[in-house]
Amino acid sequence: MKHFWMVVPLLFLSVSLFADTVEQDRQTMQFAAFRPGDTNPVTNTTLNMITDLDSTSNGWDASGALTASNYSLGFFTWTLASNSKTLTFTLSFKISGPLVNEDYASSTMDDEDAFCGRNGSDGDGHLHAHRDRQRIAVETHRERVCEVGPSESKQRGSRNICIDSHCHRGGMLRRKT
């Protein structure tokens, strides 16, 4: 007990001697870097058809016909954002005519699942887009977007979202001319 009270002043003295640096303030900052890889590429692609085929500003004249003077206007637009190392974007399309004014009360469509299924991803991180006469499909690893484009029936486009090979038909607009 007697020794203990001798130690206390020594401890106090040592703290006073060596604790000569006082921390005034401390702050931390975290930053991040990103390494793309095939394990988790982030790819987002959209492909939009022009659906208003009556509008001359969209490259079609009032009768719905494609004319030489305005066919070079934008027919569809697409955007792409990705951090994958390489991407392949393949786009092919075929337009069959003639496009005429017809009064359609109903329309028929191909089986969406079958269509989307035969355009499956090849699994190499590449992206493929295919334009068929009636529809456009854009695929990534995680999402497939099928869009119904203008048909010979002059039907306005509708949009089908396909995820994991399952397509869901979007709202379809029909109009009698």
């Binding site: 702050q27 931390t28 975290q30 930053f31 991040a32 870097a33 390494r35």
Partner: peptide, 18 residues
């Protein structure tokens, strides 16, 4: 073959006086 994804680092700042 470093894996893809996020890499984080934390930097610590200390201001002290004598």
């Amino acid at each position: 073959s470093y894996p893809g994804g996020y890499y984080y680092s934390t930097i610590t700042f200390v201001a002290s006086s004598s």
